[in-house]
Write a protein that binds this DNA or RNA. Structure first.
Lengths: 159, 159
DNA sequence: TTTATTTGTTCGGTACGCGAATCATTCGCG
DNA sequence: CGCGAATGATTCGCGTACCGAACAAATAAA
């Protein structure tokens, strides 16, 4: 039983895992009325606000693409453009109150779904996987589109 | 040196790896004048033709979305709709000659890029990674959007 | 100050993806 | 056989996503 049904190359395994993670993202989005991109934007903004250019860099999008994404997400009431106090040209995109709440829900739901993907692994294996993928991530300078959030960065902020 | 800079959770590692693989797909697409979706379509069709509904299931798309994707890819000359000999309603989507060539190039380029992501791993580690991700893939019934192709399934077919 | 650079937005265009409605074919069953 | 149901695909309308080029505004550099 449990025959390995042909060994799978690392490339195939990575691509098909990517497919699963993408689907998890999309599912969480549907669950909360967000597109995957909007959800990702919220996740990125969870630790702190960012400028448009910074966001473009992190998400791998052109500036012009960001404008629209932020527009639409702002129209939903989840993010807000704040003027940068130090630079009259720049804006800082920040989560609104409802945006913070939704971001955490979306983030948690996505984490749960992705975590479940590895349900078939033993704890030690999951740890080994995290270590190996972690090296890939840091070795390739993957942008911090998803980060560890032990405690939501909410130290004495809200209005 | 080489301090592990905080252990990364398996979820974060998977999500950020997904980001890298998506980028690789997009890059290969740009390289060959394809969108990532079109490239993925070509890869799926490499082993054999499929019906629209089958494709929708594999790629996780609604039927109406497939129509457009196939239309656009067909307009580029890379796929073709063939009538299903057994069912007058159905069509089978197949690669054209140029489509076969391009699919292999795109496939190879993407493989190379994804492979390079794991350049920082030792051979044994890469194998371990393949094994772990492979279990995730099969355990979650990830569609075969990417497959092993030792030799292109070209056994005595062409017109 | 002038000129360059940086930051964002606007604009035009294409692709993507969905649900609802529609057409054609096939299936099922009386 | 014939007629309604199910199936395979397409069409349509809509919103999202993404890009490059052109632009405006503010800052930085000369």
């Amino acid at each position: 039983m449990g025959r390995p049904e042909e060994k799978m190359s690392v490339v195939t395994a990575m691509v098909r895992t990517t497919f699963l993670v993408n689907a998890a993202y999309a599912a969480s989005g549907r669950e909360y009325g967000l597109t995957p991109q909007q959800g990702q934007l919220l996740c990125v903004l969870m630790p702190q606000p960012y400028g448009m250019s910074e966001l473009g860099g992190m998400l791998g999008l052109a500036k012009s693409s960001l404008t629209g994404l932020v527009d639409r997400t702002a129209k939903l009431g989840y993010v807000r453009r704040e003027p940068d106090p130090l630079d009259g040209r720049a804006v800082r995109v920040a989560l609104t109150g409802p945006g913070e709440v939704l971001a955490e829900d979306f983030y948690a739901a996505t984490c749960r779904k992705v975590e479940e993907l590895s349900a078939g692994l033993a704890d030690g294996e999951r740890e080994a996987l995290a270590e190996l993928l972690g090296r890939i991530v840091t070795g390739n300078e993957a942008p911090e589109v998803f980060m560890e959030l032990d405690e939501p960065v909410r130290t004495g902020s809200p209005s």
